[in-house]
Computed example of a mutant assay.
Amino acid sequence: MHNEPNGLLLAHRAMLRDLDRCAALAARLAGTPLERRRATAVAAYLTDFCDSIHHHHSAEDQVLWPVLERSAGAHVDLTELSDDHAELDPKLDRIRAGAAALRETRTVAPELAADLADLRDTVREHVTDEERTVVPLIKRYVSDEEWNRVEATIRRHGGKMSFEVPRILAVSTGAELDEARREGGIPVALMIKLLPVPFRRREALVFGAAR
């Protein structure tokens, strides 16, 4: 097998980028009153981001892990990675609660900044472990056809496209974008052109000039 799990790696790349900048934003804004529009925008972004992370690891548990266990058999033990996923959910819930409080108080609580920093560190370690252990197994044991089915299944039950796609595009190289256009045709070319426009306005409100 020689397939490259580019979709998985791009999702990780986008996730880590947002973890860094969301944690940095919260640390910078902690204790500072915000204008209501920005407070609402930051809270909504954090909520969407938590939902995105939850969807990603749920898709791995429900879609990818069974394929790996069937394909790689005794060569794979995903217990530790699945346990990591279970530990993430309470962390995500705390950040959602902090985002809800931000919407009401218009102030980033120090606890929310601390929770985001903790999530950043936890997910970075998890992604490093996952890419070291899972990616070689995908390349060796999962056929191109089966991997395409995995990605198609995850897309069908995917997150919010207006949130996911622009973040993926932001971390894609020129060669990766060209490949996406070739494989996806006109629909993907249109998404690449159109979806980042409103998202950039959203980012400007959330992250300001420091995004």
Rank of each mutant, 00 (worst) to 15 (best):
R149S: 07
R155P: 00
T153E: 11
D129A: 14
W147V: 10
R149Y: 07
S143G: 13
T128G: 08
R155V: 07
E125V: 05
S143F: 11
E151H: 11
Y141L: 06
L119S: 06
E145R: 13
N148E: 15
L119P: 02
P136A: 10
N148C: 13
H126K: 04
R124V: 09
R140F: 01
D144E: 15
R124H: 14
D144P: 03
L119I: 09
E145D: 14
E125F: 05
L119R: 08
E125M: 09
N148I: 08
R124W: 10
V142P: 01
E151T: 14
A152Q: 12
D144C: 12
D129S: 04
T128I: 02
R120T: 11
T128P: 00
E130Q: 07
V134D: 02
R155L: 04
D121C: 07
D121M: 14
Y141Q: 01
N148S: 15
Y141A: 10
T153N: 03
R140H: 07
I154D: 02
N148T: 15
A152N: 12
R155K: 12
T133H: 08
V123G: 06
T122R: 15
W147G: 03
R132Q: 13
D121T: 10
W147D: 04
I154N: 01
K139C: 02
H157F: 09
V123F: 06
D129K: 13
D121H: 14
R156I: 01
V142D: 06
K139N: 03
V127T: 03
V135T: 07
I138S: 06
R149Q: 13
T133I: 02
I154P: 00
A152S: 12
I154E: 11
V142R: 04
K139Y: 00
I154T: 11
W147L: 14
P136Q: 09
I154K: 13
N148K: 13
H126N: 08
Y141F: 15
R140I: 01
V142W: 10
